[in-house]
Every structure is written in structure tokens, then in C-alpha cells.
Amino acid sequence: MTVVLETRNLEKRFGGIIATGNVSLSIEKGARHALIGPNGAGKTTIINQLTGVLPPTSGRILLEGQDITGLSAHARVGLGLARTFQINQLFADLSPLQTLGLAVSERLGYGHDWWRVTGSKPPVMAEVVELLERFNLGDVMEDPTSQLPYGKQRLLEIAVAIACRPRVLLLDEPAAGVPEDEREDILAAVAALPSDVTVLLIEHDMDLVFSFADRISVLVNGSLFVEGKPEEVAQDPRVKAVYLGEEAHV
């Protein structure tokens, strides 16, 4: 298998505090890789470094063999690395239709177009329609995002990332805060991701992790602790200790 996304000795310090230290992670093409760990282990900090939101203090990030450590966030998206956010980061005033129309226009290279109306390109709209259908957003496509029910916002959050047609998708707790009756849509959307898309999932919900992932890395105090197949990780006594001890440490 080929490694698609790799970090080498990734380290991030905030002042004297090491948020992530010496993280070397390899994610294989087409993998369903989960990154788990207790609160404050540095999972989101890793995602933020991978996507260019935070510059690492030291270490390197490679996407399909190319060093992307110094690239800007938007340039990484262009190379096929997209993400969702743990807390929804959407365009409150725009509708799902506009949001997806924008995302697809950007990806297809119409982002600089300042003359033609958004949506006047048929290839853009074909994809937008497909996304609206796939994520069940058709009935709310013209509502401003800020007024959508939370579950719909969560779906849009994932749909926007998919609209970037990523080769590597980073999902930061996709089901976080979604009420029980709306979870199904989210889980179905995650499960239906094309198999050639490599997925790195951060999640607290162990049911979701074990039903989805074919490989799991455990992060504790900013460092990689254990990595392996789900059944190996589930059996690992050290992992059990970390999770059992979590409440005592908080």
C-alpha cells in the first residue's frame, strides 16, 4: 500500500507547553484511519497542522510524497486535502445552495470569475445537485445556514468538504453534538464516502470508531501511544488504562 499522508516528527509548542510532540503518522491510500485519545490529547491540534491552520514548531508534513509543511491552507485544499471542523464552520448568511455552489465553483477554477453569475456553469450545478441530494439538503437549500437545524448544518459541514473532492479527508468529530435521531444521516454520509478517498477520523464515540475504522492511532498527551488494527487496539491494556484513568486525571 502507498502512504498518502505522512507526518515526520511533528511538534507544536505553545510557549513552553508541548501540544503535540514528535508525532510520526502514516496514513495509507484508501484507509479508514481513526485518531482517538482523551480530551486535550492534541487531536485537533494535529488536524490544524495538517491543514495549515497552525504552523508546526518543527517536523514535516507530506501529502503523496510532496512536502506541504510550508503551504498555505488554501493551497493544500487544491492538492486534495480537505477537512471538516469539530465546531461547525459555515457561512451563516449563505444558503446551502450558495455554499455548495461556491465550493464547487472554486474547485473547478471559476473562483476568479467576477463577471458571470454563480451557478451559470452546468458542470458546477450538476455537482451541486448531486451533493444536495446525497446529503439530503434539497428541502432547505435556500434557507440561510444559520437557521438550519443542527443536524442539517452538520451534514452541510461534511458536504462542503466533499465538494472539494478531496483525496484525503479529515473528519473532526463529525457526529459531535448531533441528537440521536439525526445521527443516522451523518453516519450514512460518512459510510458512503467513496472508497478511494482516504479518511482520517477523529472521534470520541467508540461505536462509530470501531464500526468505521480499519486502523486506529491513539494519541495521549500530544504523543502517539498505540497504533494498530481496531481489534489490537481494543485489546491493548495500555489503551484501556488510559481510557479508564481519564476521569481520574481530569
Partner: peptide, 14 residues
């Protein structure tokens, strides 16, 4: 408009 709403997400869609 997307940048006004959320620059973080705007850069995350490229």
C-alpha cells in the same frame, strides 16, 4: 461574502 462570514472555512474550501 464567505470570507466575511468565516475566513477559516473560506480557506478550507480552497
Amino acid at each position: 461574502q464567505s470570507i466575511r462570514n468565516n475566513p477559516l472555512r473560506a480557506s478550507a474550501i480552497g
